[in-house]
Computed example of a mutant assay.
Amino acid sequence: MKAVQLPKYESTPELIEIADPEVTSPLDVVVRIGGAGVCRTDLHIIEGQWAEKSGVTLPYTLGHENAGWVEAVGSAVTNVAVGDAVILHPLVTCGLCRACRDGDDVHCTSSSFPGIDSDGGYAEYLKTTARSAIRLDDALQPADVAALADAGLTAYHAVAKAARKLRPGDRAVVIGAGGLGHIGVQVLRALSSVEMIVVDRSAEALALARELGADHTVLADGTQVEQVIELTGGDGAEAVIDFVGEGGAIEDGVASLRRNGNYYVIGYGGTLAVPTIDIISTEINFIGNLVGSYNDLAELMVLAAQGRVTLHTSAYPLADFGQALDDLDHGKVRGRAILVP
């Protein structure tokens, strides 16, 4: 099969021929890829930022946002069948550890992460397990939802946490309305009646946020914190959901938070530096968010099938992976780029 592999860090990935994956275990599922999301994390992987953390042996196949059709199954697989359209939870998990049994499988103690520390879905086929496969509603196509497997899942995981705390009349600030943020806006609107304020540097992104349900939009022009404080009656917001995590977003977000507010960190790249006296004197909380559970993804697929969460995508043939990565790197992708074999 054709696959896009990274031969070494800080180099251009290569489209090569490798062996097709095969079923070797009773719970294996081989999927014919219908869409693989192109994520900024892939750029970070290529740059070597994940080298130490992932410990992966190069070369290997990129791609951790994957959906397609079941091509083959092991003898013990009962939840999906050959021909089913599926989206894949990004982790391959054991099902036996305490985290898995708690439904918190993103923290499985013996998981692998295709596209991060094992072969991923920038390819024609991918091997995963039955525990990772979620059958898609007939209204959904793999290429249309593939990026929800990570970008959407991460957004849902964080926003669902926030929604469980927020009450009618509360205010939430969403920082960033791009690839992850525009999904987060939709999820927040679907799950909560909160008054939503979206902050972004792009007027186009803010226009999309208004279409998707934002109550207020604020252009990040240097006065964004003052505008948020004014919109929140001088108090700040009960929640800040930060899909950027760098370039001044953290400082703005902390300044936009009210006393006893919750700051949800999703975007990364910057450094959180807050005096401890400020944290204890206002009782603000910082909450990290890493991908999401199988159940989170299943719930997100319900919203997608209902049309309450839609993904804005730009499709590229698998052979044009380099263009997709370059377009993403230079901010030319609206929503999410999807590779289609």
Rank of each mutant, 00 (worst) to 15 (best):
G169Q: 12
S314F: 00
T93Y: 14
G269E: 10
A99Y: 13
H157L: 01
G103F: 10
R131D: 07
L166K: 05
F286W: 02
A123P: 12
D170T: 00
A158Y: 12
I46G: 08
K332S: 11
N66C: 13
E52G: 14
L58P: 01
Q5H: 00
G178H: 02
D104H: 14
S111I: 06
G35L: 08
L328T: 12
A36Q: 00
F243S: 15
G121K: 11
Q323R: 15
D119I: 03
L328Q: 09
P142L: 04
K8N: 14
V23M: 05
V244D: 04
L339K: 03
L206I: 09
E251M: 00
R167D: 13
D326V: 06
A149K: 05
S75D: 15
A249F: 03
E14V: 14
P59R: 08
C97Y: 11
E22S: 15
T154N: 10
L140T: 03
E22N: 13
G95C: 06
E47R: 15
D28I: 10
G234K: 05
S75L: 12
D235P: 01
D150E: 12
D296R: 09
A255M: 06
H64G: 05
I284T: 14
R40W: 05
E47D: 15
V29C: 06
A160K: 13
V254N: 02
L91N: 12
C108A: 01
E226P: 09
Y263V: 02
G48F: 12
G245D: 05
Y294E: 00
Y125H: 15
Q224P: 05
A207R: 10
T128Q: 03
R308K: 15
D327C: 13
L300R: 03
S193M: 04
L318W: 12
L153Y: 10
L6E: 07
S202D: 09
A207Y: 00
G307S: 09
N262M: 13
T313K: 08
V194Q: 02
D102Q: 15
D200S: 13
D278E: 15
A237F: 11
V106D: 03
A298D: 14
D278G: 12
G331Q: 12
K53N: 03
L96A: 14
V194P: 04
L325M: 11
P168H: 04
P114L: 00
G234D: 11
G74Y: 08
G83A: 01
V86Q: 07
R336T: 03
P59W: 08
S132F: 08
V29T: 08
R210F: 01
R336E: 05
E17R: 11
R334M: 10
L290N: 10
C100T: 05
K332Q: 14
E238S: 13
R101V: 02
N260L: 04
V244A: 03
A146H: 02
G270N: 06
Q186L: 06
T223F: 09
G184V: 07
V145I: 13
A160R: 13
G120K: 11
L297N: 06
V228S: 02
K2V: 02
A72Q: 14
A304L: 01
C108G: 02
A315P: 04
S110V: 10
S293N: 06
D105V: 06
A305R: 04
G261V: 03
